[in-house]
Amino acid sequence: MINTKDKSFRVGAGITGFMLLVILIGLLWTPYDPNAMNAAEKMASPGLRHLFGTDNFGRDIFSRVVQGSGATLLIALCSVGLGLLFGLLIGGLTGFYGGWVDEVLMRLNDSITAFPSLLLALVLIAVFHSGKYNIILALGIIFIPSFARIVRMEVARQKALDYVQNARLMGVKDMRILFVHIMPNILPVLLSAVAIGFNNAVLAEASMSYLGLGVQPPDPSLGRMLSEAQTYLLRAPWYALSVGGAIVLLVLGFGLLSEGLGGESRA
């Protein structure tokens, strides 16, 4: 199924691989301490000393972008993972068994998805307080309903297909049918949902940072840095550009990767 010759896949894999490599290296080494401040070098322009220049505290933007990309990637992956895990469980079971449990859970699902996601995030953060792990938790919870919905629809559709009926006749256990037989078949759809979820997670983190409730400073995250950078758009456009560039690369890489894996064809 995976066509590694596909152009989208190759470009996506290239971008994602590059970002992962940079982030991994960043875990071990960055040119500067990302949080170290320097009053003498505030707002330095990009150059040999500071590849992407420095910010309003004289911190090295390149080092912060590298670390911030890591933080953002962690938030996006974990929150999507959390949403996907529970979405699979809830959607899979309700889609497979149907009945009143399905009906009730789907109504709950509908009523939660009716709230704008940013609003839910605001409320959840007000309850949990902000911070990297609480953001993961909040976004993860917000993603559950949409994943559950997609999984449920696909599972319900697959259930009616011949191969599932055959497996049943052969006496295969329900759980095995659901997770071994059906799940691989809905993978392409899930991939596309994951890519979109990843995009949404990155954007949600940025929006929350804009409203002041994102990752705790001074630790860098791309969203927080972008909302800080907007204040210096005129004086230090490189600040916003380098952060924005990293965001685009992360999202683009994942988007192309999922497109290349065939996820897009049946979104």
Binding site: H129, L213, Q216
Partner: peptide, 10 residues
């Protein structure tokens, strides 16, 4: 020291 950002009301 760790910064804890909270809403004004909180």
């Amino acid at each position: 020291a760790e910064i804890k950002l909270v809403e004004w009301a909180t």
